[in-house]
Simulated scan of single mutants.
Amino acid sequence: MKIAVLIPCYNEELTIKKVITDFKKVLPDAYIYVYDNNSKDNTAAIAKESGAIVVREPRQGKGNVVRSMFKDIDADYYIMVDGDDTYPAEFAKELLKPIINGEADMTIGDRLSNGTYESENKRAFHNFGNKLVKNLIGKLFKNDINDIMTGYRAFNRYFVKTIPVLSSGFEIETEMSIHALDKKFLLKEIPIDYRDRPEGSSSKLNTYKDGLKVIKTILFLFKDYKPLPFFSILALLIFLIGLLVGSPVIIEFVKTHRISKLPSAVLTMGLITSAIMFFVNGLILDTLVKQNNQNYELFLNNYKSTNPVENYTDK
């Protein structure tokens, strides 16, 4: 049984040694991989001295790092954790247990349930952003996952080798969560403690810029995964605007059988036609998505049949 600890890193020389040391104590037989994402400090050298397998990823962004990790590293079970020492290593076995027992394909380290994230994290907008993303994904994708954006997760090989990673930056956690929900992978949340970065260590996450990227990712994934609801909402909004613009025209025509507000009439027809087109596009794309889901299910079945050494009997 091979366990791989995946640590994406960018300028974490103050904390990377402790993270590696802590995980070695908790998982002494695990292989620890540090993917250095163009760090300008001594992160890579310290990681190598601490006994980690160090790989350089030249494409900037956490999503790019995770994509390379998932492609390059072969293991039975995986743990992904940030290199900033905010996630305690002692929860690693709790995250792995449901994966090894076949109860989950991905476990999620939930920072929010026990209140440590809110008390430890000194950036108020991060707390607000986590709640906003949680509520938005909960409504759009009908789930009750508490911590969508946590960077502390465990996976089995089945999940790692079948997820198409498309994000390039900090949106990767959101993408993994939505993909797992849409494709009906087994998920389980494990409450964990969270601790803030040590003094001198700075976050690479830009609250506003990266927050907007996450919101954009959610909306685009909603469009891609659920096109009929997405385009139906757009069609309804445009249709209502068309009715609002066209109401005076309709009232005038009913009373006089004439139309004097020609620009309003043309705009109304354009809006109503656009609404119909959006709805029809939603229907067409919904059919394509269903076909894609069928093909993906066949791909998963083929993956299992061509990887007989993996044990899926508990699923």
Rank of each mutant, 00 (worst) to 15 (best):
F91V: 10
F91A: 01
I178P: 02
F128I: 02
K161T: 03
P98T: 06
F155I: 09
S177K: 10
R153H: 12
N121A: 05
H126M: 12
S177H: 10
N130G: 04
N135K: 11
E94N: 11
M149F: 06
N101P: 14
S113H: 09
T116Y: 01
E175G: 06
K184L: 11
I178T: 04
K161H: 11
L140G: 06
K142W: 14
F155A: 02
L95A: 01
F128S: 03
I137F: 04
N101D: 15
G169I: 05
E173A: 07
N135L: 14
K161N: 10
R157P: 02
F155Y: 13
A154V: 09
I148G: 02
F185W: 13
K183Q: 15
E171N: 07
I163E: 04
K184C: 12
R153N: 11
R123C: 08
E173N: 08
K131G: 04
S113Q: 05
E120Y: 02
Y117V: 00
H179I: 09
D182R: 15
N143I: 00
T162P: 14
K122Y: 07
M176E: 10
T174R: 08
A104Y: 00
L140V: 01
S119T: 14
N101E: 15
V133N: 05
Y152S: 13
K139Y: 09
S167K: 10
P164S: 03
N101H: 14
A180H: 04
L112F: 04
Y158V: 07
K97V: 11
F141A: 00
E120D: 07
I137T: 08
S119E: 12
F141C: 02
I163V: 15
A124W: 11
S168L: 12
D182C: 15
F159L: 15
P164F: 10
L166T: 11
N135P: 01
L136G: 00
S113A: 14
M106L: 11
